[in-house]
Design a protein around this nucleic acid. Structure first.
Ligand code: MN
Ligand code: MN
Ligand code: MN
Ligand code: MN
Lengths: 220, 220
DNA sequence: AGATTTATTTTGACTATTCAAAATAACCGA
DNA sequence: TCGGTTATTTTGAATAGTCAAAATAAATCT
């Protein structure tokens, strides 16, 4: 029923509202969807009429329960498709987001379930992003990032939160992949510079913004 | 570039022009696409403007070389996706056409190539329909059907030319699948009745129209 | 408070795709 | 050759989604 435009709006509202409550500003949504703000206002009013979102004029949007259900299903498709593309078709880690952006609207729930089984019910996609369960549960654990973690401690990378091919390529080239172990050796808030080191490797310098996109966890 | 609407128009024109030359009547196209004839006239004129088809007013449409290239690529996607759904995901033979109808517009050429390799470069889809090659070659062999074949001779089913779930379910239930061997024991043009028999099985009666949808080949 | 900047909404217009219904052309039998 | 099907095209209108630019409200800064 929902067009792929509607699915994209709902998915991005979900993604931009980190956990549940918050109102997503219209401008942020416009930027995420690459449309002008006026377009978002128009569409959001339509989505509100169909009961998928709540629109607080001048403040932002938030998903209704119905809208959230749709959004989670689309997100589940997106991430499972990425798993399939990487694990089965051996596609480039950095390229699959673009592919999944289309496929998430084209696969049925039936295909979704079979893909899920084929892949062995994965819990995260290739970038470490959690896959919503078939019943709409989404892991919302908060992780430290290379910009906020303790210094001089070995940490496991769990997730890369930037889907752009450019950033992902940078990550691959420097071995910053989910599962790898790193240690921040230096962090200078003033200069905005973070230095990280993999167990076996030369020190790597990156800016605070980039460091903040790499989520880590204590190694157990 | 081409929207999925455009891709569907081109694909159906290809399908309706059996081999190359013939003009496809506007009405036939309208029926295949499940839109009213006026819509087809409008769209076909637009497709002609963009150089994908040639429109002979009051006579029909035909693909240009450019349009044919697009159509073959979509058809290749459709049929390879069907192979994937049946062979890898073990989906119902009768249901995959509907799924592929969407997926054919969502997968990239890159994914297409990898699927093709994963499947071992199949030559036909699960219904026996030939898969266009990566370079646009489409097998156009003409086969006999249960409505036209010689009587009392063992023949191998090579293809079922009706994508509807209804007909395909009927075919499965009676074991009329590509690869199976059948023999027409009786054919009465006047009554429009054909009786076929599998090696191991009771005689099966079907109408001429249905019989014409089952393509066969001499067993070698 | 008053002026300025910034975010959001409105307005008017455009593209793509579709339908209903009326107009027209082509074909066909008598 | 005329009148009646039948197929196709036209016309007018609708829906979904989008943009540019102007209007407005809210927030921020003297
Ligand atoms: Mn998408
Ligand atoms: Mn991802
Ligand atoms: Mn299609
Ligand atoms: Mn098929």
């Amino acid at each position: 029923m929902a067009t792929s435009t509607v699915e994209n709006y709902l998915k991005h509202i979900l993604l931009l509202s980190a956990e549940g409550e918050e109102l997503v500003p219209m401008g942020a949504l416009a930027e995420a969807l690459a449309v002008v703000p006026g377009t978002v206002t128009t569409m959001v009013k339509a989505l509100a009429d169909s009961g998928q979102v709540e629109h607080r004029p001048r403040q932002g949007v938030r998903l209704t329960a119905a809208g959230r259900r749709v959004a989670l299903n689309v997100l589940r498709k997106h991430r499972l498709v990425e798993c399939f593309l990487v694990n089965v078709l051996k596609m480039d880690w950095a390229a699959v987001d673009t592919e999944a952006e289309q496929l998430e609207h084209a696969i049925s729930d039936e295909v979704l379930d079979r893909l899920d089984a084929l892949l062995g019910h994965p819990e995260t996609d290739p970038h470490g992003d959690p896959i919503p369960s078939r019943h709409g549960q989404l892991d919302s654990q908060v992780y430290a990032t290379l910009a906020t973690c303790v210094v001089e401690k070995a940490l496991r990378i769990v997730r890369i939160t930037d889907q752009s091919a450019e950033f992902l390529q940078f990550a691959v080239q420097n071995g910053l992949l989910p599962g790898e172990t790193v240690r921040v050796t230096e962090r200078n808030l003033a200069s905005g510079l973070v230095t990280a080191k993999k167990i076996t490797g030369r020190p790597l310098a990156l800016g605070l913004a980039a460091a903040g996109k790499i989520l880590v966890q204590p190694t157990r």
